[in-house]
Simulated assay, not measured.
Amino acid sequence: MMLAAAKVLACFALGDAAVALSGLPVPGAAIGLLALLASFAPTGGPDPETAALFDRVVAHAPVLFVPAGAGLFADPALLGANAALLVLAVAAGTLVTLAVTGAAATLAIAAFARRGRHVAEPGP
């Protein structure tokens, strides 16, 4: 598991370095995750050790959102002044997420149909 953790951390460091050197306006972690994803291409997925690491880490992922949520309520006046924009951003984000998810599901169902695989019909 230590080798898998080192691989993940190396990808994150690679992403941070790429952003620092290129000046790209994206988080280094996102570039690192893309590098990690690319490393799975030759085998078609993560090796068992990396998959086990992901299974352990994903259970603690909600903790990563606590600081953002706490920071949101640290300044009630700022929150109140921007409440309408926050509601608009959450609503727009939700609609975009639903649209993208629907489009992805439609494409996946069409791909399964082209391959002759049965896709379960929705229940009553």
Results as ranks from 00 to 15, higher is better:
M2K: 13
M2S: 12
L3G: 14
L3A: 13
A5N: 01
A5W: 07
A10I: 07
C11S: 14
F12A: 05
G15E: 09
D16G: 11
A17S: 13
V19M: 06
S22R: 02
S22I: 00
A30Y: 07
I31N: 06
I31E: 03
L34E: 15
L36T: 05
L36W: 11
A38F: 11
F40N: 08
F40S: 14
T43W: 04
P46V: 07
P46M: 14
P48Y: 01
E49S: 11
L53K: 03
D55P: 00
R56L: 15
A59V: 14
H60D: 15
A61I: 12
P67Q: 04
P67C: 10
F73I: 15
P76G: 03
P76D: 01
A77C: 01
N82Q: 05
A84W: 00
L85F: 07
L85T: 04
L85M: 10
G93N: 02
T94S: 13
T94P: 00
V96P: 03
L98F: 14
T101S: 14
A103K: 02
A104W: 02
A108V: 07
A110N: 08
A110K: 12
A111H: 12
A111G: 11
A111D: 03
A111L: 04
F112I: 01
F112D: 05
A113R: 15
R114V: 07
G116Y: 05
E121D: 11
E121Q: 15
E121M: 13
E121V: 13
G123Q: 05
G123S: 12
